[in-house]
Design a binder for these strands. Structure first.
Length: 221
DNA sequence: GCGACAG
DNA sequence: ATCTTGTCGC
């Protein structure tokens, strides 16, 4: 698939995406992440994904599923989902329990074409989704106070609010929250705020990150 | 044009 | 994303 084709596909996905809705009814959600040792093994190192089923308000996972796959394309900024989505979907298919939100590592609306990995996964599975990223991909925002919980909207050049820059922990680097599908920017922020536990990285992201790493280390060294 | 650039 | 120990700061 060429970059032009991937761009066109992202525009189609963004067209189908709904950046409206509340997450008040979410009872169970799944946090997903991926791990690969590209540092030592190169761009074609096998990918290991994890899907962690979480009950709202309970830090102990209900279920963990993993999957592995060879990457079809190298990582390119703005096209993360084309590399990671296949193995993440494979892990999600192994999950026995159902869920009503997908919590992703990366962006959703906060993307040059409004179609980050959270949006791509949400639209494909027709479920609400949100993205939590450690780096912003696009947009501008004002300085964020150093207090935990402080946040500022991330604004596109069009004036559209894409998500929030969030101080998830006092005096630490920001994280970036955006809706993926079937929720609005404020609902995505509220949901993430609800799942902070004193550390910079929200625990759902941490659980998925640790689970994907554990799967890789078990299969490799 | 130049630089920056999710994981 | 990935490796790795200590060390500095709150």
């Amino acid at each position: 698939m060429t970059f032009q084709e991937m761009r066109d596909q992202q525009l189609e996905i963004a067209k189908k995406a709904v950046f409206e809705g509340s997450l008040e009814q979410v009872k169970r959600f799944v946090a997903v992440d991926m791990s690969a040792n590209s540092f030592l093994q190169g761009d074609d190192a096998p990918l290991f994904a994890a899907a962690v089923l979480i009950e709202r308000g309970n830090k102990t996972p209900l279920e963990v599923a993993t999957a592995t796959m060879k990457p079809e394309i190298p990582y390119r900024t703005g096209f993360l989902a084309f590399r990671e989505a296949p193995v993440i979907l494979a892990a999600l298919e192994k999950l026995k329990g159902d869920f009503d939100l997908i919590w992703c590592d990366g962006n959703g609306l906060m993307h040059p074409r409004r179609a980050g990995i959270a949006t791509q996964l949400g639209v494909q599975l027709e479920k609400p989704s949100l993205g939590v990223a450690k780096q912003p991909l696009t947009g501008k925002y004002e300085d964020v106070p150093l207090e935990a919980g402080a946040h500022k909207p991330v604004i596109a050049s069009s004036g559209e609010t894409l998500g929030f820059a969030l101080r998830s922990k006092r005096n630490t680097k920001l994280i970036y929250v955006s809706p993926g599908h079937k929720c609005d920017v404020d609902s995505a922020l509220e949901f993430v705020l609800e799942h902070l536990d004193g550390l910079r990285i929200p625990y759902p992201t941490r659980l998925a990150h640790d689970a994907s790493n554990a799967a890789r280390k078990e299969a490799q060294g």
